[in-house]
């Protein structure tokens, strides 16, 4: 499948089919739409550059997913410094409230706010598990960690979210 001459058409076709799910995945990892679109754009650019070494459709999807997770992680790392200055959260809260067309119900917003407070690894595992619905082995492959680490991150992430939602108190 991997002739570089085919790359433009093949990646464009994948872009049509996979852009939306990938943006939605990135959105859960980085919070805002603009950044999510940036991350996904980068992932498709990287896929295009690497097209020669991509051996199957599934491999292409896997490559995209890993790129999106890694790209989101580096955005979060950069933003962590910015979080010392917590305006982004303040504006985000207001923006969600103001934008009635895109309102997420309060109960969902609490869950998403809790998600944002998880350590990065736990957040990635929770999103890949409950949004992407990936089996543990594929999560492990996407993140480059062991299945055991996936299990423990998922478990700790669920407990932290339950605590944040007040379910344990």
């Amino acid at each position: 499948m991997a002739r570089t001459g085919d790359a433009d058409a093949a990646v464009a076709a994948l872009f049509q089919a996979q852009r939306l799910p990938m943006v939605r995945l990135a959105r859960l990892l980085v919070d805002d739409l603009e950044t999510a679109e940036d991350v996904v754009q980068d992932a498709f650019s990287a896929l295009h550059r690497k097209w020669g070494s991509i051996t199957s459709h599934d491999a292409a999807i896997g490559y995209l997913r890993t790129s999106v997770v890694n790209g989101s992680r580096s955005v979060l790392r950069r933003r962590r410094t910015a979080r010392a200055h917590p305006w982004p959260d303040a504006t985000k809260w207001s923006a969600d409230s103001a934008d009635s067309g895109l309102l997420v119900a309060e109960e969902h917003r609490e869950v998403l706010a809790a998600l944002r407070q998880l350590p990065t690894r736990q957040r990635e595992v929770i999103v890949l598990r409950y949004w992407s619905e990936l089996p543990e082995a594929e999560i492990a492959a996407a993140l480059g960690i062991s299945v055991g680490a996936v299990k423990s991150s998922a478990s700790r992430g669920r407990e932290a979210i339950a605590a944040l939602l007040g379910g344990m108190s």
């Binding site: 739409l33 895109l102 997420v104 109960e107 969902h108 929770i126 409950y130 949004w131």
Partner: peptide
Amino acid sequence: ERQLRDSFDARARAGV
């Protein structure tokens, strides 16, 4: 688990 799935779904539909 159910709540996570519901909320992620709501975020995806509302946000993108």
